[in-house]
Simulated scan of single mutants.
Amino acid sequence: MDMGLTGKTALVTGSTAGIGLAAAIGLAREGAHVILNGRKEERIQRAKEQLLQAVPGAKVSGVAADFSGAKGAEAVTRAFPDVDVLVNNVGIFEPKPFEQIPDEDWLRFFETNVMSGVRLSRFYLPKMRAKGWGRIVFVSSESGVQIPTEMIHYGMTKTAQISVARGLAELTTGTGVTVNTVLPGPTFSEGVGQFVADLARSQGIDTKTAERDFFINARPTSIIKRFASSEEVANLIVYVCGTKSSATNGAALRVDGGVVRAIL
């Protein structure tokens, strides 16, 4: 299926690994000029090599930016003042008991996970509306619907993303611009791999057992009973970025392996 992205410019934040890199590769396969983002140039170069290996001849650029503060968004918008597609994927997570989460962590998580997308959308959305076409996608999480007790601060930011995206969608009425949220479930990415390894080490078990126990104890409602791959999540992101999804706007779309027990 041709997603109509040939010649479009797509910025994917946090795209040097995991879901972000998989989405970038998927968008490149659809003919988009992809802008990779990471905190360090060496990570961007490594991701660029991986993307070009997967999609030879793809047009790819990169911009180093740390979204823990406003300067990250400023660096990105200064380097690339015009994009057709914005995928707000960058995010951080850390399991921590609620009683041990200090104010600084709440603010740090909100700054990176929520304000990065707010700042970039605030810059690019008016330009998209002026052109009459654009796509903004927030990569949230099923944790924004079913708040995980082991990282409530993370869940809070994911809920906030869903709210921001829906509000922005209301501002696109009658245009060719859409704003949607994609809600991945447990996905095997670089960070999750480390999380599982740390969990296994702390309990004195192997990683396969740790993964099985995770779905028994932490995500018992999962239907697929496994971590999704980054590519499985990216497939939905790429679709929502394309022209074929033009009637999908203001939606929160789950690719959560059935974790959220709801029919809507």
Rank of each mutant, 00 (worst) to 15 (best):
V83S: 06
L86Q: 01
A251D: 09
A252K: 04
N249I: 13
I216D: 12
G72N: 08
E170D: 09
R129G: 05
R108A: 15
K127I: 07
F138L: 08
D213L: 15
G174V: 04
S163P: 08
D103C: 08
I35W: 03
A22M: 02
R29P: 00
V145R: 09
E211S: 15
N37G: 00
P97E: 15
A65K: 03
D256P: 03
T172Q: 07
Y154P: 00
G20V: 01
L183C: 15
R122T: 07
S140F: 02
A47K: 00
L183M: 15
N235E: 14
F138P: 04
E74F: 07
V12E: 03
N88V: 03
G69L: 05
D198G: 14
M115D: 08
A73I: 05
D206W: 04
F109K: 05
L21Q: 01
K131Q: 12
V164N: 02
A58M: 11
F195L: 15
A47C: 00
R219F: 12
F138C: 06
V177T: 00
R129I: 13
G191T: 04
A75M: 04
I136F: 01
M128F: 06
Q50N: 12
P186H: 01
M115A: 10
V12K: 03
A130D: 09
T16R: 01
G4L: 09
L11M: 10
T173I: 12
V259G: 07
F227K: 01
T209M: 12
L171M: 14
G69T: 01
G257Y: 00
S61F: 11
T207F: 10
L168K: 04
V90K: 00
L107I: 12
A47L: 04
I147H: 06
L120W: 03
K127P: 02
L5E: 13
